[in-house]
Amino acid sequence: MAVIGVSFLLMVASLFMALLYAPTERFMGDVQRIFYFHVPLAWLAFLNFFIVFVASIQFLRKGSAAWDQLAYCAAEIGTLFTTLVLITGSLWAKPVWGTWWSWDPRLTASLILWLIYIAYLTVRSYAAESGRGTRFAAVVGILGFVDVPIVYLSIYWWRTLHPGPVIQTGGMVPEMTRALLVSLLAFTVFFVILMRYRLRLRRMETEIEELRQADR
């Protein structure tokens, strides 16, 4: 329970830092504050993808259900965070770039990441037998993780041959960095809680499924 309290306090703190403490960005105005949510969400989207990758390898090597459960829960939570990254990114892009979407390397790689997560979840639920489904998903998780950096790089090389949109880069004042660090921490703690609950639920689901199989 204590960790939930900590997470709540951190979330309130990060809201305060992002909305009130951090100074308003000079060119973009208040809309830039979405940055303090967008970046932590992106970090967690990639962290989950990495967990899926490692847990999938371990599952294929050792065949233990625990690794598979971890990979599955990380894929589910990762899908949620990637969806939120794409939505917050579009909300930010429209007023700043004047367009909801641009096919630049980072955006495209995020969309491909989202599609691979969807493929991971779909292949599991569409598999003829669940035992196969877990292995198929693990293969997709591994291949997908290898693929996303290459997608990023290939689009980067491609777009540097064709002039593309330029993302403005600039320094951050210390207040902004602090606000970002607090919200990174807040979202990561929130993720840990989410993961713990999801894993517990997943274990219960597995148990119920086994009991139902045994009953037949």
Partner: peptide, 10 residues
């Protein structure tokens, strides 16, 4: 196609 197209981008 759902599995293949995203991975095939490069």
């Amino acid at each position: 196609p759902l599995l293949l197209f995203p991975v095939l981008v490069p």
